[in-house]
Design a protein around this nucleic acid. Structure first.
Lengths: 124, 124
DNA sequence: CAGAATCCTTTTGGATACTG
DNA sequence: CAGTATCCAAAAGGATTCTG
């Protein structure tokens, strides 16, 4: 069945690598975080995640649904409303994505000053 | 100085968002993990991270050095050897990147079966 | 060995208009 | 409202060759 003794993201055609590459995407990570603990509708997500186009939002949601992270619920209203929420599996993963988001927000100041120092050094 | 009351990755021109987008990259994440606890030379990294080209490896290393994650040490030998290692700041971040890598390797089986179920459902 | 340079392919994404 | 479709621009990446 599976020819890999164990999964390894460093191997270019390991399934874990392929999957890992789909996760290493800004829209995926932002979306997972945006949905943490609060289901949202399509247009709300589009508004909350600044800069995402309907096309990209749509395809990213579809992929995450396929991977089992997101549940798509069509509301029986006119006009139709569609609610996106995390599955328990998605909730689990979002704990990890949150850490990256959080780390970035917490450490950006330090990165910015490292960049300034580096750039000044190059200029000399 | 800084016009942002607080950093927020959901705002498209917040510095934290810009930085976050540089992190949401497969080569960055793989590289950070590859260097965890073991400094390596250029060609060793190239060998260990399957599929990375010298061009991409070089530019990714340079960016990570600029951000303060990586230290580049030129060895005084012939021919020259260059050692890449994580800074303490990089070590800290690598703890987070490790969690993603680890999560992917641990949960890939579940994702693969979710995909199969989803695809079968679409086919009906 | 470490990496720069070049050129070219592929992927990703953005804008916009349109539909059930 | 929740998308899809189209077309196009931009960015990322790959292969290869070359040099100090």
């Amino acid at each position: 069945m599976n020819t890999f003794l164990s999964y390894n993201v460093y191997r270019s055609n390991c399934p874990a690598r392929v999957f890992f590459e789909t996760l290493a995407n800004k829209w995926v990570l932002l979306l997972m975080n945006a949905l943490e603990h609060e289901p949202q509708h399509f247009n709300l997500l589009k508004k909350n995640i600044e800069g995402i186009s309907p096309k990209v939002l749509s395809q990213t949601l579809k992929n995450l649904e396929r991977d089992g992270f997101i549940k798509r619920t069509v509301m029986d209203t006119r006009p139709v409303r569609v609610e996106y929420s995390l599955t328990p599996f998605g909730e689990d993963f979002s704990k990890t994505t949150y850490l990256i988001k959080n780390w970035a927000e917490k450490n950006i100041d330090r990165v910015l000053s490292a960049q300034q120092i580096y750039d000044a050094e190059q200029f000399k």
